[in-house]
C-alpha cells in the first residue's frame, strides 16, 4: 500500500503538468470543444519556453530561477488567415507554406556550383491554377534574390508549334525538350539559366524543382 502511495506522490507533479498541457491535456477546454474544426483552422508552432516568455511576457510564466526538471515548450496557435474551404485544398497546402518552401527551392539553386550560380536566372512555374503559379513565381524570385542570385523578369518563349508539341507529352519529358528548344531559339542565352518549378503529380502538394542550362535539363528535387 505504502509503495503505491509513494508512486502516486512521485507521479503527481507529472500528472498535474499533463492535465494542464494546453494541447494534449484533458483540461484544455478551448481546443477540445470541437477539436477537429478548431485545429483545422489553426496554424501552430512549438517554441521554447524562453522565447515564449519573451514574446508573451504576460501570458507565459517565467522559468523557475533554479532551473526546471521538465523540458517545457510552448505551442503558439494562430487562426489561419483564410478559413478552411475558401481556397482549394491543394492550393491551400501550397500557399500556406510558401515562404518556407520558396526559400528551400531557392536554396537548391543558390547551392549550385559557381559558374551556374553566377548566371542570370529566369523562373518558370507550371501549376494548374495561374493565380497560384504567379504567387509561387513571385515568392521564388524574391527568395532567389534574397540568397544573392541574379534574377530577371524575362520569360522564356517558345514558338507556337513547340508549345503544341510540348502540351501533348508528359511533364517528365516535356521539361528537357523545352530546355533544348529554349536554347535552340536563343530564348535562353549563354549567360542565362532557367529554374523550373512544377507540380508533376496533380495529387501532390510538393513542388518539384529543376533547372535548364546550356540545353541540359536536371531535376534538383
Amino acid at each position: 500500500m505504502e509503495f503505491w502511495i509513494y508512486v502516486l506522490l512521485f507521479s503527481l507533479p507529472s500528472l498535474v503538468e499533463y492535465a494542464r498541457d494546453p494541447v494534449a491535456g484533458p483540461l484544455a477546454p478551448d481546443l477540445m470543444a470541437g477539436a477537429g474544426e478548431a485545429l483545422r483552422g489553426l496554424d501552430c508552432e512549438a517554441i521554447s519556453h524562453v522565447t515564449a516568455r519573451e514574446r508573451y511576457p504576460g501570458r507565459v510564466t517565467a522559468p523557475p530561477p533554479r532551473g526546471d526538471l521538465l523540458d517545457r515548450q510552448a505551442v503558439v496557435c494562430r487562426a489561419r488567415l483564410m478559413p478552411p474551404g475558401v481556397r482549394r485544398a491543394r492550393d491551400e497546402a501550397i500557399l500556406g507554406d510558401l515562404r518556407r518552401s520558396s526559400e528551400e527551392m531557392a536554396g537548391l539553386v543558390a547551392g549550385l556550383a559557381d559558374p551556374l550560380r553566377e548566371r542570370t536566372w529566369l523562373v518558370e512555374v507550371y501549376y494548374p491554377d495561374p493565380q497560384v503559379a504567379a504567387k509561387v513565381q513571385f515568392a521564388t524570385k524574391n527568395a532567389l534574390l534574397e540568397q544573392g542570385v541574379r534574377v530577371t523578369d524575362r520569360a522564356p518563349t517558345l514558338a507556337a508549334g513547340d508549345v503544341e508539341v510540348l502540351g501533348r507529352i508528359d511533364p517528365q519529358r516535356a521539361w528537357p525538350l523545352a530546355c533544348t528548344r529554349y536554347v535552340a531559339t536563343d530564348s535562353l542565352g549563354a549567360g542565362d539559366a532557367l529554374m523550373g518549378v512544377a507540380l508533376r503529380d496533380r495529387r501532390a502538394t510538393i513542388l518539384n524543382v529543376g533547372y535548364c542550362a546550356d540545353g541540359d535539363w536536371r531535376w534538383l528535387r
Binding site: 496554424d43 489561419r80 488567415l81 483564410m82 500557399l95 542570370t120 504567387k135 513571385f138 523578369d153 524575362r154
Partner: peptide
Amino acid sequence: LDLAAEGAWLVLRARITKLTPDLPI
C-alpha cells in the same frame, strides 16, 4: 507587389524591375 495569405501570416512581397529588354530585378 504581391500580398499572400500563408497560414497565419500575411506576406507582402515587392520587387522592382528595370524596364529594359533584359528586365533585371
